[in-house]
Computed example of a mutant assay.
Amino acid sequence: MAILATAADERISDVRIDDDYLTVELMDGRIISAPLAWYPRLLNASPDQRARWERAGGGYGLHWPDLDEDLSTEGLLRGAPARAA
Rank of each mutant, 00 (worst) to 15 (best):
M1V: 02
M1K: 09
M1T: 04
A2S: 13
A2F: 10
A2G: 09
L4P: 01
A5G: 13
A5I: 03
T6W: 05
T6L: 09
A8L: 04
D9A: 08
R11C: 09
D14N: 14
R16D: 13
D18C: 05
D19N: 13
D20S: 10
D20I: 11
Y21I: 05
L22F: 05
L22I: 13
L22D: 06
T23H: 14
T23P: 02
T23K: 13
T23S: 15
E25R: 03
M27L: 06
M27P: 03
D28S: 03
D28Y: 04
D28H: 07
G29F: 11
G29Q: 04
R30S: 12
R30H: 07
I31A: 03
I31L: 13
I32M: 14
S33H: 02
S33G: 08
S33Q: 14
S33A: 15
P35C: 08
P35E: 08
L36E: 06
A37E: 15
A37D: 15
A37K: 11
Y39W: 11
P40M: 06
P40L: 03
L42K: 10
L43G: 02
N44A: 09
N44R: 12
A45Q: 09
S46E: 13
S46N: 08
P47C: 15
D48Q: 09
D48V: 10
R50C: 01
A51M: 02
R52A: 10
W53N: 00
E54N: 12
R55Q: 07
Y60A: 00
Y60W: 03
G61P: 00
L62M: 11
H63N: 15
H63D: 14
H63T: 10
W64Q: 07
P65T: 08
P65C: 04
D66F: 07
L67A: 00
E69N: 07
L71M: 11
L71G: 05
S72W: 07
T73R: 01
T73D: 02
T73G: 09
G75V: 00
L76K: 00
A80M: 14
P81D: 02
A84L: 11
A85P: 05
